[in-house]
Design a protein around this nucleic acid. Structure first.
Lengths: 200, 200
DNA sequence: CAGCGTACCGAATGACCGTTCGGAATTCTG
DNA sequence: CAGAATTCCGAACGGTCATTCGGTACGCTG
C-alpha cells in the first residue's frame, strides 16, 4: 500500500476515494461473498485494475476492516450519545432502536458482510478493535435494557429481552427492503413495543 | 465419490460414518469458516486423509449440503406436524418455538455455517432444495403467526411479529451456550411471551 | 512550465487449494 | 479361507488466487 498523500487537499480526495471503494466493495461482497469474490472480479466491478486496489488497501482483509469500521463506528457514537441522555429509560431505548434500525437498513450490505465473516472477526488477531466496538455497543444496549427492566417497564427477563432485541434488529438486514411497506421507524417501534409493553 | 455399499448392513454403517463426518465438519466449519478451512485442515481434524473424504462426498460443497440437510429436514418435519395440529394458535406457536429453539441450540454449529454461507445458498443452482426447505419452514411460521394475530392473541403487526420471531430464534445460535443459566425452554417461552401478550 | 508526488496499470510470481487416481489395507461374504 | 467389496491413503496435477513491482500518465505545486 502506498502512503496517503501529504497535502491536506489531496489527502481529503484520497480518503473520499477510499471510502467509496469500501462502500462499493461492501455491496459486491454482500452479494457474492467475501471469500468467493476474487480480487479480479472485485476490481472488475470497481472499474479499477487489480494493482490499483493496493494503492488504497494493504490487502483484501483491509477492505473488510474498512467495511466493519464504516458499520460500527457511527452507530457506536450515536448509541453512546442516546444512552447517556437524561430521558426515561424506555424513551432512550426507543430512540436508540430507531437510529439503530435506520442504520442497519442503510448499511444492509455492511451488515451482511459483517455477519458472514463473523468467525474471522471473532478469532483474528488484527480484529480486536472491531470486536471491541461490537462489544461496546452491545454493552450499551444491555445496560439500557437493564434500566428499562429496573424501571418496571419491561416485559420479561433482561437476558431474554437483550437477546431478543439484538436478534430482531440484526436479523433485519437479512430481509428488509426499502421498497417494502414498513418504514424503518415503524419497524423499530414495533420491535420496542414488543419489549416494553403496549396495547396489542 | 464411490458408490455406497449395496448390502444393507454395510450401507447402514456407511450412512452412519457419513453422518458423523457431516457433524464433525459442521463443528470445524463453524469455528474456522467454510471457505477458510482447506481440505487439508479439515481432514487433519477429521483424522482422515484428504482422499478418504471423497469416498463419502462428491466434493467440499456436498459436505455443506449435508450440513444444511441435517439442519433443515428434521425441524421442517416437526413444524409441519405441530402447525397442523388442532390446538389453539397460540399454543401451537409456543410448541413450535420450543422445539425450534431446542433444535437451534443442539445444531448451533449447523446454524452458524448455514448463516455464514447464506449467499451461496441463496444464489447457487444446486441449492434449490435447501432454499425450498428454508422457505417452507418460514411459511409455516408465517401462517402460524397469522393465525395467532387472527385469534386476537398477538401484540403487533404480523409482519413485524414474524420478522421479530425469525430474528430472535435464528440469532440464538450466535450467543447461546448450554452452560448458561437459561434452558432452551425458558428461552423459547420468553420469546413467545413477547409476541402473544403476558404479564410484564 | 518544470519536476514531482500521486494514481493507476497489468503481467509476472509463488503459494495454495480442491480433486483425482492407482493402489494398499481392511473387512465382509460365501 | 479365498475372493470380492469396501475403506482409506497420499503424492501428483491443473487451476486459481492474492499480492508485487516496474513502469506510465496525470495533475498539483511552486
Amino acid at each position: 500500500m502506498a502512503s496517503p498523500p501529504t497535502s491536506p487537499a489531496l489527502r481529503a480526495k484520497y480518503d473520499r476515494r477510499r471510502a467509496q471503494l469500501v462502500l462499493d466493495a461492501a455491496r459486491i461482497f454482500a452479494r457474492s461473498g467475501y471469500d468467493q469474490t476474487s480480487i479480479a472480479e472485485l476490481t472488475d466491478e470497481l472499474e479499477l485494475a487489480s494493482g490499483g486496489l493496493y494503492h488504497y488497501f494493504a490487502g483484501k482483509e483491509a477492505l473488510l476492516i474498512g467495511i466493519c469500521d464504516e458499520l460500527l463506528e457511527p452507530i457506536l457514537a450515536a448509541a453512546r450519545e442516546i444512552a447517556g441522555g437524561g430521558e426515561p429509560a424506555a424513551e432512550r431505548l426507543r430512540a436508540l432502536v430507531r437510529v439503530w434500525v435506520a442504520h442497519v437498513v442503510v448499511h444492509r450490505d455492511h451488515m451482511l458482510v459483517f455477519q458472514q465473516e463473523r468467525h474471522v472477526i471473532e478469532h483474528g488477531a488484527q480484529w480486536k478493535a472491531v470486536r471491541d466496538s461490537r462489544k461496546s455497543f452491545e454493552r450499551i444496549v444491555e445496560e439500557l435494557v437493564g434500566d428499562v427492566v429496573h424501571a418496571g417497564a419491561a416485559r420479561g427477563d433482561r437476558r431474554v429481552l437483550l437477546a431478543a432485541l439484538l436478534g430482531m434488529v440484526n436479523h433485519t438486514a437479512q430481509w428488509y427492503r426499502p421498497s417494502g411497506r414498513l418504514t424503518p421507524q415503524q419497524l423499530a417501534d414495533g420491535y420496542v413495543d414488543l419489549l416494553v409493553g403496549a396495547p396489542g
